[in-house]
Design a protein around this nucleic acid. Sequence first.
RNA 1: GUGGGUGUAGCCCAGAGGCCUAAGGCGUCAGGUUGUGGCCCUGAAGAUCGAGGGUUCGAAUCCCUCCACCCACCCCA
Length: 418
Amino acid sequence: MFQAPYGTHDILPEDQTYWSFLKEKIESLAPLYGYERIDTPIFEEAGLFVRTVGVDTDIVEKEMYTFADRSGGQMTLRPEGTASVCRAYIEHGMASRSQPVKLFYQAPIFRYERPQAGRYRQHHQFGFEAIGDGDAMLDAELIDMAWRFFDSLGLKNLTLQINSIGCPKCRPAYLAKLREYYAGHKEVLCGDCKGRFDKNILRLLDCKKPTCQPLTTSAPRSVEHLCQECAEHFEQLKTHLSTLQLPFEINSSMVRGLDYYTKTVFEIQPEDERGQSTIAGGGRYDGLIGELGAKPTPAVGFATGIERIILNLKKQKVAMPNAQKSTVFIAWLGEVARQTAVKLSGELRQMNIASLITYTPRSLKAQMRQADSAGCNYVAIIGEEEVAQGNVTLRDLRTAKQEPVALAKLVEKLQEIH
RNA sequence: GUGGGUGUAGCCCAGAGGCCUAAGGCGUCAGGUUGUGGCCCUGAAGAUCGAGGGUUCGAAUCCCUCCACCCACCCCA
């Protein structure tokens, strides 16, 4: 038997309420902050991601779904959303729109990972990108939007962590300091960290191994090695966040796995959780647009993991608004009544009244049971008698009362009830 | 890539070498007298016990191999 590919999932009808709930929240929130929807292709030239995400990152190194298309081009199923949006920004000359350009998307994301709770090979993100302004006030506004989004969902006990990882001006000096520091402890480092030492020294900071942990506490902190510009930016960010009354924590060992980040990075996570907890992450990426060959343009953004949000909504037992149920069930008996039933179902739907109906003939009892389990509140019963008299028996399932209603008046009557 | 765990009907699961021609619950379908739901009752369909091999007179139960999925590390949303 076929199965969904490892690490992918079907989203069944019973879960769709969560998805539409989130979508509604996003669509009402985004305009409040001036964000407009953008959709980009599900795959891009592989080079786009290699260039922006970084050759030495795990994503590029071992997690991309890259394939040759029929003309030999290397294509990649998007492993993150920012690069595509920046590509679109450049391609469509959005630099000549009023800045910053604010865009959001909902997109499936593909990474070849070992699946586990909250981690999939295909997952979905809502992403927000604001391109064309470098002020820390924009960072703060963006973080405020993320925070408000989760608040509007009813998620509790979240923490907001921020950090600044500097820019190409100050980072090299900081990295040198880090390297110097860790070089002194190289023999205690875990195997992974020994490897990361040369490749991506920043990563040593968030190693969770008990042997490496103690080292990070006294490691040089990036926020203490920022150039003046970055330091001011970080100060302003903190000020604005406080003004917006966002309860942030500074996590000086938070680094991110994509190379394009500069200055601000942040994450939002549920309090109690273990491994796959981060439900939103992002930061500033002032160098990315320039890296793609366009005029250097500052930008900031973040993405949220939809599956992880839903996981938390379920964990916290957040109630979903109940979906509109089909209200009228058409029960019919006999071939003559069947024709009337078909006609009626058409008329009801024409009038935007939802209805369910039996297709293969079944007993009235069976039809009533079906109406009940489908959550219908009314059953319109059509049998020989009703056909003869030109009416239907309309039964209210909740009060268990029923009365004959002339066929001609039924639609009107049902509209009243609604 | 590294570790650990689990695999019995659509779902939850009993079952620990012969009494398993595999039990039960949910769900599905059909009934419970003449055209009526939710509760209850009856019945039916639905499982080559993840796959292959082995041990044994005998395997869902023991052994081996493979596969699938889950969890954790790593990394990230």
